[in-house]
Design a protein around this nucleic acid. Structure first.
Lengths: 192, 192
DNA sequence: GGTTGCATGTAAATGGTTACATGATTGT
DNA sequence: ACAATCATGTAACCATTTACATGCAACC
């Protein structure tokens, strides 16, 4: 999903400035499945504006810098529709965390424990914040996606809680076995 | 996680060619949380080789093109360790699928149903294939990560199964309400 | 005869992030 | 005094994808 489409999506829910779009990705309703930096949002809005997919009006504010508020046009909604009606690609999680746990046996146990505990704490924080949202007033699609995200985070928490101790025990055992001859570094055959 | 580190990770489990690394990301043990194209793998291996993090030897094969098999060096293992022992960033899911479901009310119901059903079928396929793996012989970290992936996919399937009908009903109702005056296109205020 | 799998590589184009540049206001 | 929040924008840099280029073997 490119940043232009993301902007159109945010703007389809109401007018916003570049700064507000960034916030929607950081803390708002898109925060758990999208993100974009200012360096991509502002050029995207400029392009969208040049293509007449959004309108832009300046807004002076007291005690705040001026903002440029963008408004999606009819052509913009059509472009959003076109982007939405293509079969979504198979999600790539591309997780550094998964990559790290995969190689747990190469990592010092204390570090591993720390990372895992922080991850649980962070997920719990995310879930807590998500539960505070009043979804009742929101459209069905947003409620559905919110619930899907919650289900995902809860499953992750449950699994981590249930398996962290076992993992750390096994890693500790494996590492104390390996240490003397450094056997963990021996080459093995790859197998799918 | 950059492609160089990914290559080092794969090679830490045993020697492999560029082609085999690609397969490990597509079908192998990394398939559900990493991916990389040939256009990134081959240059990465060349760089790694130049930096002496991997060794390379040519292998002639009968009835197959020659391959270049790479082997991780001691310096390579050290580099992998260094990359592993940094706190992993908060995963960005960046899902086109989530983005689409979020805007479900803008999408034709038949298309939506189709996408959701395909998604469930695909996840079920992934889970089935994952369950076929014999994890018992694999290191603790790999088993843990495999279980985490399974938990994630299963939670997603459960949620989708339990909520698809309700979502489609609500979307159908909302769209037939909206159609006469095209009210779905009215601008609303953004709210977190 | 066409597609798939095996096998390696390059170059152009894409799409982003990071860092920089600026500046007022509010809170600690 | 210092950091954070609000606010916009540019430019250099980066990694990666896509498309191209090549070629043989096996299968349908």
């Amino acid at each position: 999903m490119d940043v232009k489409t993301l902007c159109l999506g945010v703007l389809s829910r109401g007018d916003a400035s570049g700064y507000e779009i960034k916030k929607a990705c950081e803390e708002g309703p898109f925060s758990h499945f999208q993100d974009a930096s200012f360096g991509s949002i502002y050029p995207a809005l400029a392009k969208l504006s040049a293509d007449k997919l959004v309108d832009c009006y300046q807004m002076s504010q007291e005690k705040r810098p001026d903002k440029k508020v963008y408004s999606i046009t009819k052509a913009g909604r059509a472009a959003l529709f076109d982007a939405l009606v293509v079969p979504p690609s198979h999600d790539k999680v591309n997780s550094d965390f998964y990559f790290m746990t995969f190689f747990a046996q190469l990592i010092p146990v204390e570090f591993l424990r720390d990372v895992l505990e922080r991850r649980i704490a962070w997920y719990e924080d995310v879930v807590a914040r998500m539960q505070e949202c009043d979804m009742a007033v929101r459209p069905a699609g947003e409620r559905f996606t919110h619930g899907l995200g919650l289900a995902h985070y809860r499953a992750e928490i449950t699994y981590l809680r249930e398996n962290i101790d076992q993992l750390l025990l096994e890693i500790e055992a494996a590492q104390s076995d390996d240490a003397p001859q450094d056997r963990s570094l021996l080459s093995q055959t790859v197998s799918a």
